[in-house]
Design a binder for these strands. Structure first.
Lengths: 337, 337
DNA sequence: TGACATAGCGCAAACGTGTGCATAAATAGC
DNA sequence: GCTATTTATGCACACGTTTGCGCTATGTCA
C-alpha cells in the first residue's frame, strides 16, 4: 500500500519497533543491528516511505539546501556554475535551489529571503550591481561564495576571473598588431566585472602611450541586442576604430551579427576580439579571437569552496582569481598601413 | 539585535501578543487589525525575523517548492525552461529546485526522491530515456508536466514540439531542393524525441519514394563531439550524402566544426540543416538553415500549465504540441546536377 | 439594563523527526 | 548465580508553525 503519507510511526507500528529505532535505522546509526536495518529499509521501500524534510529541518535547524543566485541562467557562464554545483550537490546529498534575479535587486532580495527560510547550508551568488542593503545583511548570516561578480561589502570567499588582466591581454594583443583606435563595448561600471575590464582597457592603453578616447567606449546592457547597438554606434565614429574589444560573448554575438549585416570585413575592415570564449567562435568567418576564461575551473572551484570542510576555512586568502588565456583565431590581424 | 534565530514566539513576547496572532498578522489574515499587522511587520523587520519553512511544511503538509528535472542545464532548451519557471515561481512566491540528471537514471531517481521529501507543489521533468521504475511511480504522486521528452507511462500533461513534423519539414525542404541521399544525425530512439525525429525522417523519405538507407543514419550521444564524429562517419560513406540533417543544435555545432576542419564547402559540397535554432546560426558561413522550435512559447506554456488552477484541469487534452517553423539560411541549396 | 453580534486576539493541539537518556536483553567474568 | 559490560531498543521531549475553537472587550439594539 505505497502511499506518500506513510510516516516513521507507521513504519514503526508495522514492524513492532519504536519510531526512534526506525529513524536511527534509516540514518544508518551505529547502535542498530544490521538485521533491524535491513528489515526497516525493506519496509520503507515497500510502503513507499518518503521522509518529511520539513520535520527534519525543524528538528535539526538546518537543511541540506544550497542556493545559487544568478542574474541569468541561460547565460553559459551561470549555467556552467549551476551544472557544477548540481553535480556536487547530488554527490553529497544536498539539494540545489535556483534563484534567478534577472538583475533586479528587489527580486534578488525576495528570492534570498525565501531561500533563508530553508536554513540553507550555503549559497553561491552573482549579485546585481547595486543590491539592496537588506540583501547584504542577509548574506552575512550564511556561508557564501561570490562567483564572478564581487561585491566588497559581502564577506566570504570569492571566485572569479582576473578581469583586469583579461582586458589587458586583449588590448595588448591588439596593440601588438598595430591598432591604436580600439573600441570598447562593455557593461556598467557598477558591476565589478564591468569596472575591472574597463580599467584594464584604459590602463593598458595609457601605458602604451595611447589616451583612451571616451568616444570609443560604449557601455550598454549585456545582451545580444546591446552588442549590436554598441557596435553600430562605435563603427559610426570618426575616426572609425580599427579594432573592437567586445567584453562578453553575448556582446560579441551581437557585434558579429551587426558587422555581418553591415557587410564589414573582419579582420579586413576591423579586428574583433571577445572576452569570454564560446564553442561557436570557431564558426564565424575565419574564427573569432577571444580571451578565454577558465569557466569550468572557476565553477568547479566555487563549488569545491562552498563544500570545503570547516577546518580548511579562512586560511588567509579570501579570493581566488583564475587567469584567462588568449585564443587566437582569424578575427584579429595587423592593422592596414 | 537582528539574529536569524528569532522565532514567532520571540516576536510575540516582545510585542505582548500571542504567537498565533503574530502568525496571522504576517500571513495577512482577515481577523487581525491593520494596526496590529503594522506593528508586527515592523518588529519582524527590526529583529530580522526569518520564518522556518520546515515548521510550516510540517504543519501544512506541502511546500511552495517546484522541481525542475533536466538532463543538462547548459543546454539552451533546458536553460530556457528554467528561466521561465524561475520567473513564474518568483512571481507567485514559489521556490525552484533544480535537478540535473546528466541523463543518468540512477541519479535522476535519487534527485527525485530528495525532491519529494519537500512535498513539492509540482514538477517539470525531461526524463532520461529509460527511467527507473521507481522514478515513474514516484511521479504518479505529484503534479507533473513533461517537457519536450515524453514518457508514455507518466501521467500528467505534456508540452513539447512536434518532432516528427519538424523532421518532416526539414526533409521536405531538402527533397524540394533535389536531394535524395540525405544523412541523418540523431540521438537514441529510446528517447521520445529521437524516435519521433527519426520516424519523421524515414516516413517523409518513403512518401517521396526514397528508401531510407541505414548507412546514412547515425545515432549518437547528443554532444558537440558526437555531432562531429557522426558527420565524419556519414561523409565517409559512398555514395556520399549530398545533404545532412543534424537533429539538434549541439549536433549541428559539432557537424559544422567538422565540416570546417574537413574543408568541405557548404552548401557546395553538402547541404546542412539543423533541428533547433540558435542565435549563432546566422554566423556560420552564409548561415545555417534550421527548423526552429518555439522554445520560448514551449517554456512559457509548460510553466503556465504547472501553475494552472485546478478548475481548468484535465479538459480532455493532455498534451500540447507546438509547431516548428523553417528558417531558411545559406546552408541549403539545390543539389548540383 | 440585558441580550447579542462582532472584531480581535489567546489557548492549545497537532504535524514528523532527531536525540539524550533510561531500559531490557544478552554476554562475559568471577 | 551474581555483577559488570555491551548491545539493541524504547520513552519522551523539543523544534516553530498553522489553525479550530473559545474567550474577552466593545459597541448595538430592543
Amino acid at each position: 500500500m505505497p502511499s506518500s503519507k506513510t510516516t516513521l510511526k507507521d513504519l514503526a507500528a508495522h514492524l513492532g519497533l519504536a519510531h526512534s529505532t526506525v529513524s536511527r535505522a534509516l540514518s544508518n546509526h551505529d547502535a542498530i543491528s544490521q538485521d533491524t536495518k535491513d528489515r526497516v529499509r525493506h519496509a520503507a521501500r515497500q510502503y513507499g516511505y518518503v521522509a518529511n524534510s520539513g520535520a527534519r529541518l525543524l528538528r535539526t535547524g538546518h537543511s541540506q539546501t544550497v542556493g545559487l543566485l544568478v542574474p541569468d541562467i541561460v547565460n553559459e557562464f551561470y549555467a556552467t556554475i549551476a551544472k557544477n554545483l548540481a553535480d556536487d550537490c547530488s554527490q553529497r546529498g544536498h539539494q540545489l535551489m535556483l534563484l534567478v534575479s534577472d538583475d533586479d535587486p528587489q527580486r534578488e532580495l525576495k528570492l534570498l529571503q525565501a531561500l533563508l527560510e530553508t536554513r540553507p547550508a550555503g549559497v553561491v551568488v552573482a549579485l546585481t550591481a547595486v543590491p539592496r542593503k537588506e540583501t547584504l545583511s542577509h548574506l552575512a548570516g550564511v556561508r557564501c561564495i561570490q562567483f564572478l561578480r564581487v561585491h566588497a561589502k559581502v564577506q566570504g570567499l570569492t571566485v572569479g576571473a582576473d578581469d583586469a588582466a583579461a582586458a589587458r591581454m586583449a588590448i595588448e594583443h591588439l596593440l601588438s598588431l598595430g591598432h591604436r583606435a580600439i573600441g570598447y563595448v562593455g557593461v556598467s561600471e557598477a558591476l565589478s566585472t564591468g569596472a575591472a575590464r574597463l580599467r584594464g582597457y584604459k590602463e593598458t592603453l595609457e601605458e602604451a602611450g595611447v589616451a583612451p578616447d571616451p568616444a570609443l567606449i560604449a557601455l550598454i546592457e549585456p545582451s545580444v541586442q546591446g552588442g549590436a547597438r554598441a557596435a553600430a554606434q562605435l563603427m559610426d565614429r570618426s575616426p572609425r576604430p580599427t579594432a573592437l574589444f567586445l567584453s562578453s560573448p553575448q556582446l560579441a554575438l551581437g557585434g558579429a551579427q551587426w558587422l555581418n549585416a553591415a557587410k564589414l570585413r573582419v579582420p579586413g575592415d576591423v579586428s574583433v576580439i571577445s572576452y569570454g570564449n564560446s564553442s561557436w567562435f570557431d564558426l564565424w568567418g575565419s574564427g573569432l579571437t577571444a580571451v578565454s576564461l577558465p569557466i569550468q575551473e572557476l565553477a568547479a572551484t566555487a563549488s569545491a569552496l562552498l563544500f570545503r570542510e570547516s577546518g580548511e576555512e579562512l586560511s588567509g586568502q579570501t579570493s581566488v582569481l583564475l587567469a584567462p588565456s588568449l585564443v587566437k583565431r582569424g578575427s584579429t590581424a595587423r592593422m592596414r598601413a
